[in-house]
């Protein structure tokens, strides 16, 4: 087990001294630094309020850091104006605890939407969505509405939507938080399979049992600070 921050050239994600303060003085993220290698699967753990979600929001350019830098594939995304943040998000995949699916769109439409926003032609969309539906084993549910699916299936749709762009990094913010143990394990196996195909994954969780089973590199957050980094 070793500790400390050491950014390498092969790092696909580098966070340097990230700080985010919410009014009046609450430091949600306090000088956090770490790096993630290409193809790595990293866990970020911490109790509620530790700063995991804020960190994810900064990394996916949903919010702006007060100070610090974030390099994704060598590009400093903190220098990109917030209005153009959508360009960064197109390069990333983000999966949320509450799935964030559009209820009036079918499974197919929810996934294809991530490509539609990039003006991808319909023919290419069909091909890509079909591929990704096979990965998450939901081809038979393509016309179903999200609310008719189980929690695990909804999360798989969300994963498919995050994957359809072939993202540089897949961020997953407590993706198993709303699921029972068996379903969580299924979702985690899916993430492992995706990771094996070369996608870098950064996942936030507070599920101790999963961490014990996976034994992967883990960054520990407490009250907005990185307190530990565990390498297995």
């Amino acid at each position: 087990m070793k500790k400390g921050f050491e950014a390498k050239n092969s790092s696909i994600l580098i966070a340097k001294d990230l700080v985010k303060t919410y009014p009046p003085y609450q430091k949600a993220v306090n000088r956090i630094s770490f790096s993630v290698e290409k193809g790595e699967f990293v866990f970020i753990v911490g109790k509620s309020g530790a700063g995991k979600t804020t960190l994810f929001r900064l990394l996916s350019k949903q919010e702006e850091a007060d100070s610090g830098q974030i390099f994704i594939n060598g590009n400093d995304i903190t220098r990109i104006p917030p209005k153009r943040g959508y360009l960064v998000r197109r390069e990333l995949g983000v999966v949320y605890q509450d799935f964030k699916l559009i209820h009036y769109k079918t499974v197919y439409e929810n996934i294809s939407y991530a490509l539609e926003v990039q003006s991808v032609p319909d023919r290419k969309i069909r091909k890509k969505v079909d591929e990704v539906l096979q990965v998450v084993e939901l081809s038979h549910k393509r016309k179903a509405l999200p609310l008719t699916l189980s929690g695990g299936e909804q999360q798989r749709v969300a994963i498919a939507r995050a994957l359809v762009n072939r993202p540089l990094i897949l961020f997953a913010d407590e993706p198993t938080g709303n699921l029972d143990w068996d379903t969580s394990w299924e979702i985690l196996k899916l993430f492992m399979a995706i990771n094996c195909q070369g996608t870098t994954i950064v996942m936030a969780t507070h599920n101790e049992k999963l961490l014990q089973l996976m034994k992967l590199r883990t960054i520990v957050l407490e009250q907005g600070k990185k307190t530990d980094e565990i390498f297995y």
Binding site: S60, Q62, K83, Y86, L87, R89, R90, V94, K100, L101, I102, Y104, Y113, A114, V117, Q118, R161, N165
Partner: peptide, 15 residues
């Protein structure tokens, strides 16, 4: 809520 999701998946403001 849908507007938020649209932005999360990379939709531009115009879109």
């Amino acid at each position: 809520r849908e507007i938020e999701i649209m932005q999360l998946v990379g939709a531009s403001r115009t879109f």
